[in-house]
Amino acid sequence: MSIRHSLLALLQDQPRYGYQLRVEFEDRTGSTWPLNIGQVYTTLDRLDRDGLVSNDGGDGEGHVVYSITEAGRAEVQGWFATPVERSNPPRNELAIKLALAVTLPGVDVAAIIQAQRTASMRALQDYTKSRRDTAANQRAADTAWLLVLDSLIFQTEAEIRWLDLCEARMLQLAQASGARSHVRKPSNGVTVEEATPLTAENRR
């Protein structure tokens, strides 16, 4: 997440001081990514140094107010216009963990998958509940928060589908290697065809 660009975008709205920026940011993203105030001040210092905001001095109540500069506006515009960069490929602890688990002896991969599935489902249940509660008494400010929740819901759902696929693939590998003792059926909605491991024949 780019704190730098988020703060700049909020300043494009109107001049604000550090604490206001933090409250505004958290309000619009449902406090999903809490900002610590120190982080806000450090970022403002850097933006000031780079000429993207200007320090307008105190507001008489001990707050230092910042406003956006022309260069800052251009920066925000560029940020909105550029697709979010995908770290290539995105670092994904779960994928790394499973990739290692399947290649190491003595690891119960099925158990790892189920434990993760349960944890992901819990999160999905909580997101879904939050979404329902927020939508039921929606305020104008909740629009941004609902979008963030939808994004979390889609990501978590994708994670669970991917776990189902991993399980189906493993099952197939086990069957192919003749391990008949723990034969299981392919998992949720994943057909055997989809789950076919990439081999020299079908990679093409």
Partner: peptide
């Protein structure tokens, strides 16, 4: 969650706001 005719696990919503907090 059911596998081969057995209940193998269960997920209960926590309704815990902390789950909504991803690290900054």
């Amino acid at each position: 969650f059911i596998r081969d005719g057995r209940i193998v696990d269960e997920a209960t919503a926590m309704h815990d706001p902390a789950v909504l907090l991803a690290p900054a």
